[in-house]
Design a protein around this nucleic acid. Structure first.
Lengths: 96, 96
DNA sequence: ATAATATATGAATGTTTGCTCAACTATTCA
DNA sequence: TGAATAGTTGAGCAAACATTCATATATTAT
């Protein structure tokens, strides 16, 4: 194998995106479908600012996608890899 | 779904274990087979102390297992979930 | 135009993290 | 026994991170 340093960093960045409970909960909501920032904030009992900051990180990693409609912004998962990693992790936590 | 806060934290902890380039490289070496701390340190060009600190975290998460032989300690992956998460992440980074 | 709503963003702050260094335990060798 | 080797551990420090607060931008309503 012999992983390059670059790929190690990229992999670490990918998993970093999933390494915080707030982001995990954001993703768990987005798995069910797209949601606005305020709906996420309400569902998570976090401030809209905090949610927006986290979404920015997820957006930069291309894990979520934003769709603007009027003054709302709807976020959804950009890619099913994320959902797969999520469910595989959940599996590990629940059983095994 | 409605993920509990506890499970969100556990999931985040699992992914945190994979969220650092040094740990990713440790895991990429352990995928090939068990290795002593000093062999890992040499392969990664890290101090044994730094490697040992990281291995402790991985051990506490039950991602690696330690086997002591004389004065050496050989580490290996505890569970193939880890290797699966790793290769799925690599897939995401390399293609798509 | 003004006000209200939805989101984004920068600075500030407290917490967490990864490493180094020094000290420690356990094991082998002489 | 004493010295050398392999690894672990705690303290300390700098860098990274998550949230809050205040402010800014964009859109809609009056």
């Amino acid at each position: 194998m012999n992983l390059t340093e670059l790929k190690a960093i990229q992999l670490a960045e990918l998993f970093s995106a999933l390494s915080d409970a707030s982001r995990i909960r954001i993703i768990s909501l987005l798995i069910e479908g797209e949601m606005s920032v305020s709906a996420l904030a309400e569902g998570l009992k976090m401030s809209e600012s905090a949610v927006s900051h986290q979404l920015r990180g997820l957006r930069q990693m291309r894990l979520v996608r934003a769709r603007k409609n009027g003054r709302q912004v709807f976020y959804s998962l950009d890619d099913d890899h994320v959902a797969k990693l999520y469910s595989m992790g959940l599996d590990h936590v629940e059983h095994g």
